[in-house]
Amino acid sequence: MRRFSWFNATALTLGFAFLYVPMIILIVYSFNKSKLVTVWAGFSTKWYGELLSNQAMLDAAWVTLKVAVISSSIATILGTMAAYVMVRAGRFHGRTLFSGMIYAPLVMPEVITGLSLLLLFIGLNVDRGVGTIVLAHTTFAMCYVSVVVSSRLVSFDQSLEEAALDLGCSPFQAFRLVTLPIIAPAVISGWLLAFTLSLDDLVIASFTSGPAATTLPMKIWSSVRLGVSPEINALSTIMIALVTVGVITASLITKQQAVRQRREEQAADRVS
């Protein structure tokens, strides 16, 4: 069995310390009694209480959640369609432009995406709010979804679809009964990615929202620009905790599935 060499152990320890110590400090200071983040004045959970009674913050969280769920769901549908078109539709007029429009938003600076969408909404005289943020988030998230799903579709054995057609499926039935169940894990990770991107986004939301809608990142932004606040620390701690639990659960589930599948495959080989 391979062991850590001293160099690798040092590199990993320092590296992960760099990645995680700031978050740990953030979490520790969320339990600080003092309003001053720099002075430790004893353990307290009062900032959590204050956070939960901050109506504006709760409203913003609700708006963010709403935007994230709606936009990531639409983005997943559109992104899966786009991925299918990219991998399966063959040649059509404007294919180059289409793939360009899929990949460009991935490298486009957020300030430009936000600015261009805002100018569009103003030009069309649309009332800005939750709706416009959803449109904006859907547009850039669908590109991420389509990249995730198309990388799965590329490795998808096309004869599975042909077998379904051969056995009497219409093309749509073949997609629903065979392709979709098999690529489902990629579609779900696409949705999760879109959801996280939407939760996380500050710049595009700032450009495309109106006075009626404030998302949580916008709220955090306006607060932290004035300096460090223990309430934001408490909020950060909650968000970090949720993500950590989510990611660990997801990885445990996939690991368990992989182990079970491997065990079953070994059992099958033994039978033969």
């Binding site: 978050m23 953030l26 996380d200 500050l202 932004w221 460090v228 950060s236 968000m239 970090i240």
Partner: peptide, 9 residues
Amino acid sequence: TSFLIRVYA
């Protein structure tokens, strides 16, 4: 985890 929070930290 949120980009904004990681910068804020």
